[in-house]
């Protein structure tokens, strides 16, 4: 079961660029952006897509604290997850730097940060990518 939950070395490598740089795709047909990039626009189905940088600032639409975490997640539980509105797109992402869940609320500003996402075990590769955190000094932290 080791590693069943996270990306393995080669696929993590293959998919690193969008994850490292928070690059999504813009549909040349309907103009909408999405992340992570699929092979077709999730809104209109067009295959005519181009790479697009997503904004690193957004607002929290909804959040949850997950206690029923998977293997390898227990030492970080509860794990917070948010649905984030970036204006031009929405993303589901892990929320980090949450010390006081009572300060999480729909509408608070959040920002993208580069973090560890998972690792196979302490001998495997580390998967990095973007998570979101409440913008320090804007309602969370003091």
């Amino acid at each position: 079961m080791s590693g069943v939950g996270g990306l393995r070395n080669v696929e993590a490598w293959r998919t690193r660029i969008p994850r490292y740089r928070f690059l999504g795709a813009r549909c040349k047909s309907c103009g909408k952006l999405h992340y992570p990039p699929l092979k077709a626009c999730p809104y209109c189905g067009s295959r005519d897509l181009e790479e697009a940088q997503l904004p690193r600032q957004g607002r929290l639409l909804a959040f949850t604290s997950v206690y029923s975490v998977e293997e390898g997640g227990r030492e970080e539980s509860p794990i917070f997850v948010g649905l984030i509105d970036l204006g031009v797109a929405r993303v589901v992402a892990e929320l980090t730097d949450v010390t006081d869940p009572s300060r999480l609320a729909a509408g608070i500003p959040v920002e993208a940060v580069f973090r560890r996402i998972s690792e196979e075990d302490d001998e495997g590769v580390i998967v990095y990518g973007v998570k979101f955190r409440p913008v320090p000094g804007a309602g969370e932290g003091d």
């Binding site: 994850r19 992570p36 909804a62 997950v66 589901v92 892990e94 729909a106």
Partner: peptide
């Protein structure tokens, strides 16, 4: 796999988000 399941969130996270949205 490369989207909502990327993080160590298990199975329940998306339902939690939907419930939270719904209540709000």
């Amino acid at each position: 796999r490369y989207g909502d399941a990327l993080y160590k969130v298990g199975h329940a996270a998306v339902a939690g988000l939907l419930a939270s949205l719904y209540m709000d």
